[in-house]
Write a protein that binds this DNA or RNA. Structure first.
Lengths: 241, 241
DNA sequence: CGGGTCGTTGACCGTGATCAAGTAACGTGG
DNA sequence: CCACGTTACTTGATCACGGTCAACGACCCG
């Protein structure tokens, strides 16, 4: 089954027509290699993407080399929604590892808006869920220490992976290097290294290669004041199918 | 004219039916006083609001007293969209000054989704524009100095005020105290005071009471790498009226 | 082997936090 | 009209978290 449908049907069931609409978003498929740039700031934002395989991230550069990763993308995620509001892309999309994407034009959304209010409500809700998550993120960047931010990132990634990956435990592959983790959290790779090391010493997490295990989930959750926004959505107000 | 319609019609024109849909969102009206809490984290998120008069902001608390303001609300803004994804509110909404709000239930959106694909596309686009703005914000918090963040905030507020306020100059009322500015930018009020003072000394801005003037806009824009995301939206792919 | 990427560790430094005191503006009540 | 409390802003002294710079080690792949 497509990982987009899998992810969406975690929240509501779909009619055949709705499933067909979703399937049209994944008709094409393109491969990218690790560190390929899929699109850059200022390029025409004609297409959206469904991530099918591999992790990606979007980031914004500052002219002096500072970089902020604003979104980490997993299989089943829709990429580029924040850019549909503009004629050109507001961030750069890069492959964190070899990956597969399904591009689709903005206008396919227009069809969904006209024909499926229920699917529209879901997409609208997901966009707003993402907004709420960005706010949590902003809180982490504005008011949290390095250790708290790292705890937050690990918990959020784990929560997201649970949605498309039933049977997910607290051990997961983290295909990001410490530069990338730092750029996502507003830290330097040096300090990421130090802090991860200290958290490992304290028995909060364990690392083997690029795999992480959250050992003391309760303590991590308290550290980061983490709330799982992915586990459920309020779909009670949605139009009927 | 209602400030919501004014703000939305900045981007597209509306049919009579669409105007009526928008008007249903502003049927009721409630007054609040400065520092009133409209709703808090965890309360049932039954209603959304249209801000009609006065500034507000939503924030998230940490248990030890740290606070992050995640959104500053102006007249004409829709408040609470990030919460429609959940059964209860994810942030607290507070009045920055005396203000007027128009509450409406989530289910009024459901009607819009069923009857007006074009208005749906606009709301969807605005939600995603807000996402892009949050990402700019995240970049500011993660990778910018205090001075750059303040430049960024002032430019963004000014850009937003221009939408509903034709003839807006670079002088505007800023009804937020320095604690609130700090909480929005991840700084202490002390440092906000110092930095604003230094920026004034450098001739970048001027202050008189709670009014701010951006004197060297070009330099401020360079400082903050500011891009105005409010001035125009890509509406070319929207369904026809 | 050699070269590249990535992670670790050490020494030092600077931005912005913390703590504290003082000032200005304002409304209140006597 | 002044004494007062409150709130907001400013300024100074000190501190610490995390940045910067640099060196080194581990690993992978050619």
């Amino acid at each position: 089954m497509s990982c987009l449908i899998e992810k969406l049907s975690y929240y509501i069931g779909f009619s055949d027509a709705e499933s067909r609409h979703i399937a049209t978003l994944e008709e094409d498929e393109v491969q990218y290699q690790k560190y390929d740039e899929i699109y850059g700031v200022g390029e025409e934002a004609e297409y959206l993407f469904v991530a099918r395989k591999g992790w990606l991230y979007s980031y914004i550069d500052l002219p002096d080399g500072r970089r902020q990763i604003v979104k980490i993308v997993h299989p089943g995620d829709i990429v580029g929604l924040p850019d549909i509001a503009f004629a050109s892309a507001t961030s750069t999309l890069k492959a964190a590892e070899d990956c597969t994407l399904c591009p689709f034009p903005k206008t396919k959304l227009d069809v969904i808006f006209r024909e499926s209010p229920r699917l529209t409500a879901l997409l609208f809700t997901i966009a707003n869920r993402d907004l709420a998550c960005m706010m949590d993120n902003l809180r982490a960047m504005g008011r949290m220490s390095a250790r708290e931010r790292i705890a937050f990132l690990l918990l959020e990634l784990n929560a997201r992976l649970k949605i498309s990956n039933r049977g997910m435990t607290t051990t997961f592959r983290l295909p990001l290097n410490q530069f990338e983790i730092g750029d996502a959290l507003g830290l330097t790779h040096t300090y990421v290294s130090r802090t991860l090391g200290a958290m490992e010493d304290d028995g909060l997490i364990a690392r083997t290669g690029s795999t992480v295990t959250l050992l003391k989930v309760r303590e991590l959750v308290d550290l980061a004041e983490f709330e799982d926004r992915y586990r459920s959505l309020d779909t009670t107000w949605f139009p009927a199918a």
